Amino acid sequence: MPRFALKIEYDGGPFAGWQAQAELPSVQGAVERALAALDPGFRAGARIAAAGRTDAGVHATGQVAHADLERDWDPFRLSEALNWHLKPAPVAILAAARVDDDFHARFSAQGRRYLFRLLSRRAPATHDRGRVWQVVHPLNVQAMRDGAAHLVGRHDFTTFRSTMCQAASPVKTLDCIAIEEIAVPHGAEYRFHLSARSFLHNQVRSIVGTLERVGAGAWAPDRVRKALEARDRAACGPVCPPQGLYLVGADYPADPFSGAASSRG
């Protein structure tokens, strides 16, 4: 059975998360239903695997999944057919690519990249409603960068993971946290770029929620270090809401979508 990698974009607002769940809408379920319209195996209950299982309300601009199909599709025609059958769900196949049988969207990934968008202004968000976390007070970007610096590297992130996290170990290596400040009408948007081989459940939202407290002046930057060293969930700042979070990419030894056959746009 030929294996295909899919690069997927979605608005997580209407979904209970990526993972298929009984009686609840999911991104995985939407893609599998579209595949079922094209492939006998998915009509019989085949499943896809993804690079990351995003939570309810979390978006993606570069989720990667793989599917084993009975038909050896032209990748461009596969993406076009899937997008037709995904309508009107806010899910799009950006590219499809034929990959080797040993490619696995989750286990072959060497890194994941997330973006978190935080809007600081008093006027409500309009065009980005549901796509940013908004606060009404100003934030100090340099203080947030100083606090974030304590988290880069290999650490025990017990403080910054959900109590529901099922990872075998809280030790992770955070490769990068970069924070952009972008002027917007009557305010500023802060974009947090985080990359690591893998993340703990709620790790990004816990980190950003804590750094927001630093930016607001409620925490000193060094308190982030103390919270990390406490290895205690109670030492974490607030967990920010999901609507500002985006899975923007997964990294592989070779980019499965680099070939011209994966896309014509």
Rank of each mutant, 00 (worst) to 15 (best):
M1N: 07
P2V: 12
F4H: 07
A5K: 04
A5I: 00
A5H: 04
I8M: 01
E9M: 03
E9R: 03
E9N: 07
Y10K: 02
Y10N: 02
G13E: 09
P14S: 00
P14V: 08
G17L: 14
Q19T: 12
Q21D: 00
A22N: 03
E23M: 14
L24H: 11
V27T: 02
A30M: 10
A34H: 06
A34M: 11
A34L: 13
D39C: 12
P40H: 00
G45T: 09
G45L: 13
A49C: 05
T54Q: 10
D55H: 01
A60W: 13
Q63Y: 10
Q63V: 01
V64D: 11
H66T: 04
H66V: 10
L69W: 09
E70N: 04
R71W: 01
R71I: 03
F76I: 10
R77H: 12
E80Q: 06
A81S: 10
N83R: 14
V91C: 06
I93F: 01
F103A: 10
R106E: 00
R113P: 14
L115P: 01
L115W: 06
R117E: 05
L118N: 06
L119K: 09
L119R: 09
T126G: 12
H127Y: 11
R129Y: 07
G130K: 15
G130R: 15
R131H: 15
V135G: 08
H137A: 12
H137W: 14
H137D: 11
P138I: 05
L139W: 04
Q142C: 14
A143R: 08
D146M: 04
A149C: 08
V152H: 07
R154H: 06
D156L: 07
F157H: 10
T159N: 00
S162H: 11
A167R: 05
K172W: 06
K172Q: 06
E181R: 08
I182P: 01
V184K: 04
P185G: 12
G187P: 14
E189N: 08
Y190K: 02
L194V: 11
L194D: 15
S195A: 12
L200N: 08
H201P: 00
G209F: 05
D222G: 11
R223W: 10
V224G: 01
E229N: 08
R233C: 02
C236S: 01
P241F: 12
P242S: 14
Q243C: 14
L245A: 03
V248A: 15
G249L: 13
P253Q: 13
A260D: 15
A260I: 02
A261W: 09
A261Q: 10
A261C: 03
R264L: 13
R264C: 04
